[in-house]
Simulated scan of single mutants.
Amino acid sequence: MEMEKFNFEELKVYQKSLTLIDKIYAQTREFPKEEVYGLTSQFRRAAISISLNIAEGSGSSNPEFRRYLQISLNSVKECVVCIEIAKRQNYIHSEEYEIYRKDLAELSKMITSLMKYLSRK
C-alpha cells in the first residue's frame, strides 16, 4: 500500500530543510554535554522551525504561506548565529562551518524565491 503524501513534502525547500536537520542533529551529538540545554537545544529547535513553518504554511493562502516562510527565514538566520557560536567555541571546524554557511545561504535563497513566487500569484 502506498503512503499518503502531503503537498509540502514535494517542495525542494522542505526536503533541503530536512537534510539540514539531519546534519545538525549529527553535529550537535558531538557538542559538549553541558550544551545540551543551551546551544544544542537552540540549534536543533531553530533548524526544526524551518521545516515546521514550511509545512504549516503550505496549503494556506499565499499571503499566509509567505508569513510562515518569513518565520522559516528568521530561523535560518538563527542557525547562522548558532554555527557562528559553535565555531567560536571550537565545537565545529572551519570546514564544517563553511559547509553550514553554504547550506544555510542556499536554503535562504530557496525560501526567498518561493516567497517572491507567491507574491506574483
Rank of each mutant, 00 (worst) to 15 (best):
G59H: 09
A55S: 14
F65E: 09
E98Y: 08
S49K: 06
I54N: 03
I99F: 05
S72A: 15
E98L: 14
C82Q: 13
E98W: 02
I71V: 14
N53Y: 07
S72M: 06
R101W: 01
V80R: 15
R67P: 01
Y91I: 05
N62Q: 11
L52A: 15
E78P: 00
Y97E: 11
A55L: 07
I54P: 01
R101T: 00
I99E: 12
Y91C: 07
L69R: 03
R67D: 02
I85V: 15
N53C: 09
A86D: 10
S61H: 07
R66K: 14
K87D: 06
I50F: 12
G59P: 05
C79L: 05
S58P: 02
I48Q: 10
G57E: 03
S58H: 15
I92E: 00
Y68F: 15
R88M: 06
N62T: 06
E95A: 14
S72K: 04
Y91W: 11
Y100I: 00
S58L: 07
N53E: 08
V81I: 12
S94A: 14
A47Y: 07
I71D: 03
S94V: 13
R66E: 11
A47R: 07
L73D: 08
R66H: 00
V80N: 11
Y91S: 03
S72G: 06
E98P: 01
I83R: 03
L69T: 02
I50K: 12
V76L: 06
N62L: 04
C79F: 02
I54L: 12
P63C: 08
I71T: 07
S75Y: 05
I92A: 05
I85C: 01
V80Y: 10
I83E: 08
N62K: 13
S61M: 09
S60E: 11
Q89C: 10
